[in-house]
Design a protein around this nucleic acid. Structure first.
Lengths: 345, 345
DNA sequence: TTGAAAGCGCTAACAT
DNA sequence: ATGTTAGCGCTTTCAA
C-alpha cells in the first residue's frame, strides 16, 4: 500500500522547491519566506516525511545521542544514574543511550570501538576492566567523561564518588558509638589497583588509624562481588570463624541486605549486638528490617557534574584536550535503625 | 600529532589497491588473493583504520544494533531482561542498545520516532502510554516485538507474561492453605484497559471465584505505583481501615518488600497472622525477612522468545507482516517462608 | 531568498 | 582477482 520511504527530495518535489530549502526549513535555519516555509511544512506533513538521522549524521557529524557505557544494570546505581543523565541531557537537546559492557574486557573493548562509538556525540564510560593503553588504543574521537575509581589516562575528564571519605565516615561513626570490633564485609587488603573495594577498605583503615583503634585482620572478610547473596555468605563465613564482632561496615547496601538477613539467621540482634552501616543509600535501605544506616555518595550531584563536563566539550565541538578535570563528589552519612536502638513498635 | 580520521580510501592508498578491495577484505567477502588480503590487513593495522558505521549503514542499511525501549530501569525486571537479550543478541552477531522512555507519552513518542528508530535493525518495545494509533502513526520501518500487557495493534509480534494465571496461582495457593480474607495490595477494579495491575487483579478474582470464596472489596487496596514505598503505604492504609485480613497478594515483589516492612511495623507476624505472596521472583525475595513466596514469570524463556521472534524477521530482511505472533509465557509459584511456618532459628 | 554542485564514507552492481 | 561507476540522503559551500 504505502510507497517507499519518503526522503527530502520527495518533499522538495511536492513543495516545488529545492532540497536545500527543505533542509533549511526543517532545521529551522533562517532564509526562507513564510510562504515557502509553509509549503514545505505542509508537504512534510502530507508525505509523513522524517529525516534520516543516519544520512544527517554522515554529513553533519552530529547525532544528538550521548552514549552511556556501564558494566551492568543490576542494582539501582547505574539505573538511577541513567535516568538522571537522560533528564539532564534532554533539557539540553540530547538523549541518552545505554549500553551494557557486561563488565568484561571484551565487552568493554567492543563497546568503545571507534565503530560503535562514532554514532555518539559524547560518551560517559564506567570502565572496570580495561587499562589506559586499551583506552588510548581505542582512539575514541568524541568527548568522554570517565566514571568510577580507576585512574585511567590523564586525557579524559573523570568524575568519582568519595569512596575513601565515605567509608571513613561510616567507620568513624560506629567507633564513636562504641564499636571496637568492626567487621569489614567485602573488604580488601589495600594493595594493587584502586577499586571500589580497595578504596572503601582504605577508608575503614583510615578511620581506625585516626581513632587509634587497631584493626584485627580476621574481621576483614572478602566477598566474591557485592550482591545480596555475597553479603549473606560473607557474614555466615565470619560467624563460622568464631571471631567476635560488634559492628559491620558492609561495602554496599545490596550486600548489607544479605548481611542483615544473615545476622537474623544466626540470632544476632541489630543494632544491639552488632551495628551495621552500608554504602550507596539505595532507596530500599529505608525498608529493611532494621532500616539501614548508610553512606549517601550524592549521585544526583554527580550526574549533574558529569553532564556539565561532557556537554561543555560536546557543545564546544572537539574533545578539546588541554584542561582535564578530575572531580570527586562528597559523601554524607544517613543514620537509621541499624546503628541506633530500635524504635518501639 | 595524529592526522585526521583514517578512512577506507587511505587504507586503499597505503595498500596499493582500490577501496572496493579493502571493503571486500574487511567484510570477509571472497575474491581477494591471500597476498592482497595480507597487504590490506597490514595497512589497516598500521593506519589504525576502523570502519565508519554511519557510512556503512547509510549504504548497506544494517547497523547490527537492536534497540530495547523500556519505560525505566528501576527494578530488576528490565535490567535483567536487557542482560538476557544482549547475551542472546551477541551470539547472533547483534548487540542491544537500551533507551529509557521515562514511561511518559512524549518519551515514548520520541523514542519510536522514525528518526531515532532507523539506526536499529530491530526493536523491542515495552509501551505503557501510547496507543495503537500512535504506534501506527510512528511508521516504524524495522521489525518490532512488543512487550507487556497492553494489546496494541495486530501488526506486531507480541510477547507477554501470564499475569492472570500467575496471580490466580498465588491466590489459590493461599486459599488452599486456609486464608479466607486475602488483601490485594496494589489491586485494581477489573475495568478499562489491560494493565499489569488489572490483569493480576483479575487472577485474584478468578481464584476466588473458582474456590467459591467471595471477595470483600474493602480488601482491595490500590497503590500509586508498585514500589517498596507504595507497598508499605498500602498496608498501613489497610491496617488503619480496621478491615481484618489473613493473607496478602502483593502485585510486585518490590511492593511486597514494603508490605512486609509495614506488617512488622504494626506487629503482625508473617506467615502466622498473615500469609504473603508477591509476584516477579526478584532475586531479593530470598533474602527478605521472612523470605518471600512469589510468582516466577519465567523471564528467561521470555527473553529467548523475544529474540527468536525478532531475529527471525531481522535476518529475513523485512518487517514481513502477515503472520503476527502473540506469545504468553507461563508462570509458576516459588514457595518460601512468607506462606509457611517459619523455620526454627 | 533560493538553488546547483559537491561530497560525507561506504558498498552494490557491473566491468575488466 | 581487482577496479570503476554510481549513489545511499543529507548538508556545506558558493553562486544566483
Amino acid at each position: 500500500m504505502m510507497g517507499g520511504v519518503v526522503k527530502m527530495s520527495d518533499v522538495a518535489l511536492e513543495a516545488g522547491v529545492s532540497t536545500m530549502t527543505v533542509s533549511n526549513v526543517i532545521n529551522g535555519r533562517p532564509g526562507a519566506s513564510d510562504d515557502t516555509r509553509a509549503r514545505v511544512l505542509d508537504a512534510v506533513a502530507r508525505l509523513g516525511y522524517r529525516v534520516n538521522a543516519t544520512a544527517r549524521q554522515l554529513r553533519a557529524g552530529r547525532s544528538g545521542a550521548i552514549g552511556l557505557l556501564v558494566p551492568h544494570l543490576d542494582g539501582p546505581y547505574y539505573s538511577h544514574l541513567a535516568a538522571r543523565l537522560d533528564t539532564l541531557a534532554q533539557s539540553r537537546g540530547y538523549h541518552v543511550i545505554i549500553e551494557r559492557t557486561g563488565a568484561s574486557r571484551e565487552g568493554e573493548l567492543a563497546a568503545i570501538s571507534a565503530e560503535r562509538v562514532r554514532p555518539y556525540d559524547g560518551l560517559v564510560f564506567s570502565p572496570v576492566q580495561i587499562d589506559t593503553a586499551d583506552l588510548r588504543r581505542a582512539g575514541i574521537e568524541v568527548p568522554v567523561v570517565l566514571l568510577g575509581e580507576r585512574r585511567l589516562a590523564g586525557e579524559f575528564d573523570h568524575v568519582m564518588m568519595d569512596n575513601v571519605g565515605g567509608a571513613e565516615l561510616a567507620t568513624s561513626y560506629m567507633l564513636e558509638r562504641g564499636a571496637r570490633r568492626i567487621a569489614l564485609i567485602g573488604g580488601r587488603p589495600d594493595e594493587g589497583v584502586d577499586s571500589m573495594a580497595t578504596l572503601r577498605s582504605r577508608g575503614y583503615r583510615n578511620a581506625h588509624a585516626k581513632a587509634g583503634v587497631p584493626v584485627d585482620e580476621r574481621l576483614v572478610v572478602d566477598a566474591a562481588s557485592f550482591t545480596t547473596i555475597d553479603g549473606h555468605e560473607a557474614v555466615m563465613r565470619l560467624r563460622r570463624s568464631g571471631v567476635p564482632f560488634d559492628g559491620a561496615f558492609v561495602l554496599t547496601d545490596a550486600a548489607a541486605m544479605g548481611a542483615l538477613r544473615a545476622l537474623a539467621d544466626v540470632g544476632l540482634r541489630v543494632p544491639d549486638d552488632v551495628q551495621v552501616v552500608g554504602f550507596d543509600n539505595d532507596a530500599e535501605g529505608e525498608y529493611l528490617i532494621p532500616r539501614l544506616t548508610t553512606i549517601d555518595p550524592d549521585n544526583d550531584s554527580m550526574a549533574e557534574r558529569i553532564m556539565e563536563l561532557l556537554l561543555r566539550r560536546v557543545d564546544a565541538g572537539e574533545p578539546g584536550d588541554g584542561d582535564v578535570v578530575e572531580s570527586v563528589m562528597s559523601a554524607r552519612i544517613v543514620v537509621r535503625e541499624s546503628t541506633l536502638a530500635r524504635a518501639p513498635g
